[in-house]
Simulated assay, not measured.
Amino acid sequence: MNESPDNRNVIEPNQKPDITLPIVVYALFLAGVVSGGLTAVIGVVIAYVYRGQGPDWYDEHYRYQIRTFWLSLLYFAVSGILTLVMIGFMTWLLAVVWLVIRCVKGIKRLQEQRAPDNVESWLI
């Protein structure tokens, strides 16, 4: 790896980027379901710190992860409010399924070294 003038690591054109860190972020998001979101917060911090340091398809994963975090926060907050009228448990389950599907799709696309589909989507 070469050091660029602004001291960030730059990936050479013929070198494959290490996909371990984005996979760890996806795993932290999934673990957030059982940790009450604590690991997801750690994951989104990692995504914010490391975005912009690789090829376009690689950086799109960090963008996708950041967007997934904020949307999941919204969906889980709405589910928490809806528990007052007894449908929040169902919407919470839907939010968990949505999160799992987005993370699995992201990991699959990452392993193919391609950008995730539908980065801007509120759905899957």
Rank of each mutant, 00 (worst) to 15 (best):
D18G: 07
I66Y: 04
V100A: 09
K108H: 10
G88P: 03
M1K: 15
P22L: 03
G54M: 08
P5I: 07
V96G: 02
W57F: 13
V97A: 12
P17N: 11
D56S: 13
V44T: 13
L110A: 01
I107C: 04
S79D: 09
V24R: 05
K105Y: 08
V41R: 00
A95S: 15
M90K: 05
L30Q: 06
R102L: 08
V25T: 08
G37L: 06
A47Q: 01
Q113R: 15
N14T: 13
I42K: 00
Q53G: 12
P22F: 01
W92E: 09
L94S: 09
K16M: 11
D117W: 03
L82H: 04
R109Y: 10
S79F: 07
R102S: 11
V100T: 11
G54C: 08
T39E: 00
V100G: 04
L93S: 11
Y75M: 05
H61L: 08
K16F: 05
P55W: 06
M90Q: 07
Y26C: 01
R109W: 08
W122K: 11
T68M: 02
F76I: 06
G37Y: 00
Q15H: 12
E12S: 11
I42T: 00
A27R: 07
R8Q: 15
V96R: 01
M90W: 14
S35M: 03
V119A: 13
L30D: 05
Q113L: 12
T39V: 02
P17S: 08
M1N: 13
G106Y: 02
V10S: 03
L99M: 14
W57R: 10
V25D: 04
Q65R: 01
F76R: 00
L38F: 08
V41W: 00
L99W: 05
A27Q: 07
V45L: 12
G37M: 03
V78Y: 06
G52T: 09
Y64R: 03
W92T: 15
V10N: 01
I101Q: 12
A77D: 05
E60V: 06
C103R: 01
V100D: 13
R114T: 14
R67K: 15
R114I: 11
Q53P: 04
E3T: 13
A95G: 12
E112T: 06
V45H: 03
S35R: 02
V49K: 05
N9Y: 13
Y26L: 12
W57P: 14
Y75G: 02
T39R: 00
E120M: 13
K105H: 09
F69C: 05
F69M: 07
G37E: 05
A115Y: 09
K105V: 03
T91M: 06
Q65N: 01
L93E: 06
R63N: 13
